[in-house]
Design a protein around this nucleic acid. Sequence first.
DNA 1: TTGTAGGCGTTATCAG
DNA 2: CTGATAACGCCTACAA
Lengths: 336, 336
Amino acid sequence: MTSQRRVTLQDIADQLGITKMTVSRYLRDPQKVAEKTRVRIAQAIESTGYIQNRVPAMLSKSSSKAIGIVVPSLSNQVFAELVQGIETITRQQGFSTLIAHTGYDPLTEEEQVAVLLSYQVDALILTQTDHTLRTRKMLVAAGLPVAETMELPVEPIDIAVGLDHIAAATAATRRMIDAGRKSIVYLAARLDTRTLLRQRGYEQAMKHAGLKPLTVSTSAHSSFTTGSSLMQQAFQQSPGLDGVFCTNDDLAVGVMLYCADNGKTVPEDVAVVGYNGLDVGQAMRPKLTSVVTPRYRIGEVSADLLIKRIQGETPATSYVDVGFSFTDGATDRNHV
Amino acid sequence: MTSQRRVTLQDIADQLGITKMTVSRYLRDPQKVAEKTRVRIAQAIESTGYIQNRVPAMLSKSSSKAIGIVVPSLSNQVFAELVQGIETITRQQGFSTLIAHTGYDPLTEEEQVAVLLSYQVDALILTQTDHTLRTRKMLVAAGLPVAETMELPVEPIDIAVGLDHIAAATAATRRMIDAGRKSIVYLAARLDTRTLLRQRGYEQAMKHAGLKPLTVSTSAHSSFTTGSSLMQQAFQQSPGLDGVFCTNDDLAVGVMLYCADNGKTVPEDVAVVGYNGLDVGQAMRPKLTSVVTPRYRIGEVSADLLIKRIQGETPATSYVDVGFSFTDGATDRNHV
DNA sequence: TTGTAGGCGTTATCAG
DNA sequence: CTGATAACGCCTACAA
């Protein structure tokens, strides 16, 4: 009973003694068929539980009215919000979304891009800029609009919507420097592109202020426990540290928990700045100071640009810097 | 330049002066074509950046070698792990996955199920048991294997893999009762089925012990801040409370942060038990006691059962209770 | 208002 | 080893 053929237009047509063309017409515009037929078709569709099969349309128009989204991780609120931003736009334009995830691995990205392309998506939204050669080739060959999001690639494939993570990290670090911190450490996990960009920004700010940068990192993925253990290492390597810049809020919260647990007061003893401005940080006391990345907006903007491109328009801009700001936190103040 | 036609088998065949059939053969098994042809085809494919189009296969076999997964939320680690469990199995069996999300809304679920079915997925994995009538109808009409996961539905559509949330909640509550707690409150957010099941379990345990249950809830979604504010309300409604059972770990951590911030010691003043055993809880001090739900396992089991069904086998079981356990936490001990 | 013919890109099947 | 043909389900275009 599992593999009974799915109901088709033909089935419905046969059942009513008409042709599938009439049923097809009804589906796209009920007004186009006679009142009597209309009622009968409606009934038949209702009773059979007919579901539109998109596949033929994909075949003949080689378009699916779908946009593919490739995110690194499914459990990261950052990407969940990006997707929500995308979907507010796609939904109102009648596009659906296909979501794939890569676990931060360019090879998996390659695979997933191939899968999405094989489903004939009309556009692709990527969230990494580090692509394999084959990925790039496929994207070019497919000739569809592609948006790279979150960070701004040096050599964009096509559309780019994101923010300057180097500048954001520099600004974050400078806040602590301006507040009188001297020994600031950068905590990094899962060494993806963005983590490295932030490191660059951090190092620039430190060097510019004549301070010595120190990065403590792990290839493990970010979590609260990772944050705690990185902080422990940081104290070992730099006992006098008075500030930490964390590559994301998960680490930052782990740092705060570690401090609470080891007699260090934030921000008096140690300043902490996180990245992304997630709810976690805002639930802490004091509230975490963090870089706000407008990913909802990134989603909206990139979806909007892509749909315009799908529809044949040529938007003036294809490179959008959405900027950044800071949460209203208190973990980087009150020094000396 | 955006809508150049995608490269097809025909293009490659033309380019080589052979038929697409030969190219198609090569793709499925390179051994099936002559050495010489093989090399030429390989080259042409490489240079054109050809990507397999799955759509025609979906049409003719009305199968896509894909499994649809419908999760409530993309930012919840619980579902991320479920998906990972699913994908370990699907990947090794050559199936891809299509992920859709509902925001905990049965109507959105209906929509997403329709979308996935229209892509001719071979099976569906759902994570809610509260479906609209139309959803149920579509699933029956589509006649594909369906797994309902996480909770165990009273009337399963087909396959069910999950755990007994009532029993788990009862056990969690009883731990605190056994440790001498008298005034235990249940904190709930986003009132989905599982939240309500846990409430039932909590109430049963309380009544059984002759204690008065009290639930403090909100329709807002779970977060640390939600947890903190629910805890504040709980103290207002029940100043003498000495225990809280939280419907998930996010709330529980919010509760712990609130306590830390308001001079209450955990577990001395207030016992706390969470749900899901996420990393957050394990990063807290003391470590959060929490119900461990084996969602990775749930993913594996359901994917395995579904694929067997797709391949025509009839597994003996289609109803699997994976059970639950507790994290090695300390937030529910040390009383009186 | 309804019907007929053909095509989208691939693969199963049969023929050469 | 390679080619020809038909089929999958729907929609566009045209015809009745």
